[in-house]
């Protein structure tokens, strides 16, 4: 066998969801000859057996490590989802996920990158979604928290700088959200579910359905989040594309009226500066 053939065979056996022995049986069953024991002979021709352990047992060590290592990382990444669907449910989820989305990144940090999408959209998850319709949103929220933790740094626009600027200077600044800020919209009340899940409670759907707009960000190396009303969410969405504060105020005036807009915009600005969401583009 070439090196590529050797590595491909080992990779497939190690990643087989039901273990090496089951993978060998399935390989025999799906081969044109349907010859029992053929795959095992292929394995034994490749990997040495001895009196202490046969080839299948030796490869099984790597197979067990493969699943348990990734499972451990994903459990740490998605604690509230684990709390919601339970240990067995999460094991099944990860088994199905890895079949469809094997890790493509050299780093385990990104092994869970597509879990929320898989949970929300893949056909294999239809029954899971039927039982826990909020699980996909919860996973997306937990991933966003991971994502901002080590997102790119940048110069935060702070109160100090703003206070040194003349109003007309500030008005000319083109403002953006920092790389460490994420805006997310969810169909379910993820913040309540997440709080329950990370407090050791089982996150349950309380019937308080409805969209949740959330901003997630990093400040002083800690990850924060808070819910947004529709107007602040829209304002931050504008800023995510870049905007002068004056333009934002003009938009707010259309939405809120000339009287209410300046006060609301000032309140927003104070909060955004305090949270460290803004940068100058």
């Amino acid at each position: 066998m070439s090196l590529h053939e050797t590595q491909t065979a080992i990779s497939e056996w190690v990643r087989a969801p039901k273990g090496v022995a089951a993978a060998l049986e399935e390989e025999d069953a799906s081969s044109p000859q349907r010859e029992s024991g053929r795959a095992k002979r292929r394995l034994e021709n490749l990997i040495r057996s001895d009196e202490s352990l046969d080839a299948s047992g030796r490869l099984g060590i790597y197979a067990n490590a493969y699943f348990s290592r990734i499972l451990g990382v994903l459990r740490a990444d998605y604690p509230a989802v684990v709390g919601m669907i339970g240990d067995v449910g999460f094991n099944d989820l990860v088994t199905s996920y890895l079949l469809v989305e094997p890790s493509r990144s050299p780093s385990l940090r990104y092994a869970g990158l597509r879990l929320a999408d898989f949970l929300s959209n893949h056909d294999a998850m239809a029954r899971t979604r039927a039982r826990w319709p909020e699980a996909g949103d919860l996973a997306a929220f937990e991933w966003a928290r991971i994502d901002v933790f080590d997102a790119a740094d940048g110069p935060v626009l702070g109160r100090e700088l703003v206070s040194r600027l003349a109003p007309e200077e500030f008005a000319e600044l083109f403002l953006c959200l920092g790389e460490w800020v994420r805006l997310r919209a969810f169909a379910h009340p993820v913040l309540q579910l997440w709080r329950a899940g990370t407090n050791g409670e089982i996150p349950r759907f309380q019937g308080t359905s409805g969209e949740a707009h959330v901003v997630i960000w990093r400040q002083d190396e800690k990850v924060f989040h808070r819910s947004l009303d529709a107007l602040e969410e829209a304002a931050l969405a504008k800023l995510s594309l870049g905007s002068r504060f004056d333009d934002l105020c003009e938009w707010a005036a259309i939405e809120l009226g000339d009287e209410a807009a300046p006060g609301q915009a000032a309140t927003w600005l104070e909060r955004w500066l305090s949270d460290g969401l803004l940068v100058v583009a």
């Binding site: 990643r15 890790s103 050299p106």
Partner: peptide
């Protein structure tokens, strides 16, 4: 060692066959 093939990562330190071809590679 090798840790993955066909752009799929096993996240483990997989042993290599000890052959001249692998040494060269």
């Amino acid at each position: 060692c090798w840790t993955g093939v066909s752009e799929t990562n096993l996240h483990d330190l997989m042993p290599l066959p000890y052959t001249d071809e692998v040494i060269e590679h």
